[in-house]
C-alpha cells in the first residue's frame, strides 16, 4: 500500500531533481549572493571596509576622489557590510551565477569613485558623498540629500544646525 502511495506521489509531483542547468533554478529571495553597490547612497564612511572579514572591500584616496573597490572572488557573503552600512548603499543581491573562466578573474570586481566637488557654499574641495542619516530627525528628503552632497563637512554641519537638529 505504501509503495503505491509513493508511486502515485512520484507520478504526480515529478522528479525531485532540480532541473538546473537545463532550466532556471529557484533562488531564495533573501539569499546572500553577489554584492551590489549603489554609489549615489554611499556616505564614504568606510564601515564596510572595516568589517569585511576577507578584505574584499578597499577604499583608496585618488586625485579624482574616494575610490571604492570590491573583489567578488574573495567575498564570503557574510553580509556584515550590508548590516553595518548606514544607507543601504552596499547589499547582498541574490545572484549566484558567478562561475567564470580564469581570464576574467580580476574583472569580477566593482570599481567606483566618489568624486571631489567644490562646495556650493564655500568653494572648498569636498567629497560628493551622501550625508550620514544617523540621528537626523526628521529624516532627509531626497532633495536635501542632493543639497548636502555638494557641501563640505563644515557647511553640512552648518546646514544641519540651521535645520534645527544637532549633528
Amino acid at each position: 500500500m505504501n509503495t503505491l502511495k509513493i508511486l502515485l506521489r512520484n507520478l504526480v509531483r515529478g522528479p525531485s531533481t532540480v532541473p538546473f542547468p537545463f532550466a532556471p533554478a529557484w533562488t531564495p529571495e533573501r539569499m546572500r549572493g553577489r554584492i551590489e553597490f549603489k554609489l549615489s547612497s554611499c556616505t564614504g564612511c568606510r564601515a564596510c571596509e572595516q568589517v569585511c572579514a576577507p578584505g574584499a572591500i578597499r577604499f583608496d584616496k585618488t586625485p579624482e576622489g574616494l575610490r571604492f573597490m570590491m573583489w567578488h572572488n574573495t567575498c564570503v557573503f557574510c553580509g556584515l557590510c550590508e548590516f553595518y552600512c548606514p544607507t543601504d548603499a552596499i547589499r547582498n543581491g541574490n545572484d549566484w551565477h558567478m562561475a567564470h573562466a580564469v581570464g576574467e578573474k580580476y574583472g569580477m570586481a566593482i570599481r567606483e569613485t566618489i568624486p571631489y566637488v567644490a562646495c556650493t557654499a564655500c568653494g572648498m574641495k569636498a567629497l560628493a558623498s551622501a550625508p550620514n542619516p544617523a540621528g537626523v530627525k526628521p529624516p532627509f528628503t531626497p532633495e536635501e540629500i542632493e543639497q548636502q552632497r555638494n557641501l563640505c563637512p563644515a557647511c553640512r554641519k552648518k546646514a544641519l544646525a540651521e535645520r534645527g537638529v544637532q549633528p
Binding site: 567575498c75 557573503f77 549566484w96 558567478m98 562561475a99 573562466a101 580564469v102
Partner: peptide
C-alpha cells in the same frame, strides 16, 4: 581554467 567563487558555492553554482 574555471573559477566558481562562493564560501561555499551553492550546489547549483
Amino acid at each position: 581554467d574555471i573559477n566558481v567563487p562562493g564560501c561555499p558555492p551553492r550546489p547549483q553554482a
